[in-house]
């Protein structure tokens, strides 16, 4: 209960809070022979200190690309076309490669999608975690590294015997928690977790999610949590940004978003969560997005929007603050 109370206080005072990350007009394109695919279309958002921001949207909406952009991990044919990514005031997009390497992992770390499969099968857990630590902290003694690793394992709720094990000796949930331990190894101020619990069973998912909450509480780290499971988001995040076809269509504190989703796409996302409390008729939507190479004039959601108006086909709605901290890009509220 205290968690929810804190959360209410937090969102009230957020205007005065420190921003750890600020993303301004980030634009990422993928080059194809028939023109650029606009994967991220000039998005703006920020993450406060100690806050978890959820980033949701269907597959292909650009949420993973956007976060890859933050760490400059976009691979060709993708490229960052424009924008600023301010991490503690420093624009990551302007750094040179060696400066960037210093920032990555130490200041902002990534728990990639399917992280548990990214562990090296022939390296023991201690070596995998130790690798990152010694690269960034070359002066650290062996004993200190070992202590740090054991401390990290405890922090993510793993027994110390995991230290000496190989990845194949761990279950999926345990591997995922090793990846979380790696993510927090250097005390970053920002963690980006890309669907950290997908491909896990509900019970294991719950354990991993609890680990993330725990880590956040103990370290006060900021987090971006990418996902498409609205139920999980409701449990884990403080604010949610909803992405559709490369654009953020709504950002709001989690409570406000679930109580009163304003963008028709957000409404659709929430309505499509299957309930286990009551059987209700399924809400069906045709789901074809426009060609991302060639977005239509006006609102990007016009082809699927049940409340589309003439206006929407001509003018792009800007993201506007309709309630405190609740931003929506939709003509319905003008």
């Amino acid at each position: 209960m205290t968690v929810t109370q804190n959360r209410a206080v937090e969102s009230e005072t957020s205007a005065a809070r420190e921003k750890v990350l600020e993303v301004k007009n980030l634009r990422i394109h993928y080059e194809t022979p028939r023109g650029d695919v606009i994967a991220v279309n000039g998005i703006n958002f920020h993450v406060y200190k100690g806050e978890t921001l959820g980033l949701v949207g269907e597959s292909g909406c650009g949420k993973s690309t956007a976060t890859a952009g933050i760490l400059r991990l976009v691979q060709p044919p993708g490229r960052i076309v424009d924008g600023e990514v301010l991490l503690n005031g420093v624009d990551l997009l302007k750094l040179n490669e060696s400066e960037l390497r210093q920032k990555r992992w130490r200041d902002a770390s990534l728990i990639p999608q399917g992280a548990m499969n990214s562990l090296n099968p022939v390296m023991k857990v201690k070596e995998q975690i130790g690798d990152g630590i010694t690269t960034h902290e070359p002066g650290m003694s062996r004993q200190a590294v070992k202590e740090r690793i054991l401390e990290l394992l405890t922090l993510v709720g793993l027994p110390s015997r995991v230290y000496d094990l190989y990845p194949h000796e761990l279950s999926g949930g345990m591997k995922q928690r090793v990846c979380i331990a790696m993510g927090i190894a250097l005390n970053p101020s920002m963690i980006i977790a890309d669907e950290p619990t997908s491909a896990l069973d509900v019970v294991v998912q719950r354990v991993v999610a609890q680990t993330l909450l725990d880590v956040k509480k103990k370290l006060g780290v900021s987090m971006i949590l990418i996902g498409h499971d609205m139920g999980l988001q409701a449990q884990l995040v403080d604010r949610i940004a909803v992405m559709y076809a490369g654009n953020i269509v709504e950002i709001a504190p989690v409570r406000s978003l679930f109580e009163e989703p304003m963008h028709p796409y957000t409404q659709l996302l929430i309505a499509s969560i299957p309930s286990i409390k009551e059987r209700k008729p399924l809400k069906i939507t045709e789901g074809l997005t426009h060609d991302l190479r060639n977005p239509p004039p006006g609102c990007i959601f016009q082809f699927r929007c049940p409340q589309v108006m003439e206006h929407c086909r001509k003018i792009t709605p800007p993201l506007r603050e309709l309630k405190p901290e609740h931003y929506v890009a939709c003509h319905l509220y003008e």
Binding site: S171, V202, Q235
Partner: peptide, 25 residues
């Protein structure tokens, strides 16, 4: 019961109950 209790509820006001222990391998 554990399985159903672990399904995340899409309501920020309804939180998971007590922490569950993941079974070791």
């Amino acid at each position: 019961q554990l399985l159903i209790d672990s399904i995340p509820v899409p309501d920020p006001d309804i939180k998971w109950g007590e922490d569950v222990e993941a079974a070791g391998d």
